[in-house]
Amino acid sequence: MASNAPENKGRGKLTKRDISRLGLRSIFNQSAMNYERMQADGWTLAMIPALKKIYKDDKEGLANAMGANLQFINTNNYAAPLLLGLEASLEEHGEKRSTIDGLRIALFGPLAGIGDAITWFTILPIVAGITASFAKQGSILGPLVFFLVYVALFFARIPIAQLGYNAGTKAISKIRENSAIVSHAASILGCTVIGGLIATYVQITVKTKIPVSAGHTISIQTQFFDRIFPNILPLGYTFLLYWLLKKKNVSPVVLILATFVLAIALSWLGVL
């Protein structure tokens, strides 16, 4: 029974200042951007002070939380503080690991979509369009306004993080009532979204065409793989890697290097 109830004793509390700091630290989100786990390293780096304060002397708890945060994540950089704040509130109140991870995984993709639509496809074109018209006439107002807008947006990370934290704190009492069922539901949500992520992020397109008769060729990709199921190669390759990682205990570094070499070699051969 005790294992089912969220553990709350001995945890540090986060202050409003801690959350503001978290908002500013969201700048680290892309500090170690890479194709394997995208922003995971920087995301964890941003979370470290908050996690240290929450787990205090509980070294094992801290290690677990850091490890769990170090999983694939790729979101918009202004959505990151929102998600960081939300996660900090859940960590602080000792929600189940699977609840926290499930929600984070489920939310980063949609938030990336919304965030990119706002920052890259709405704010940037408007700001760039207006300031460029000044700049083309040689007016310093162009670059100056551009700069000021983005400095303001940078500091907006602080209220965005507070927003996420408060949303999380409000949701906690609801989660608390049925923590086991909620964590199961969160895992379902997480796994559904991972399925979608595989279909959108992993891209493998075979270029090879087989000549069947004079002047007639069959494209392996469009006339074979795509007819079986779209994105079947990404799904197959992801499961192959999952199998190698889980059952054969192959190191991720080996898989990264193998994938990289394979990609270059197949590009050279003209297969991909």
Binding site: E36, F72, C191, Y201, P234, Y237, Y242, P252, I256
Partner: peptide, 15 residues
Amino acid sequence: SILPAVGFGLLLKSM
């Protein structure tokens, strides 16, 4: 465009 598969493999391993 293929490397994220490693990240997802690791994610599935834990989830």
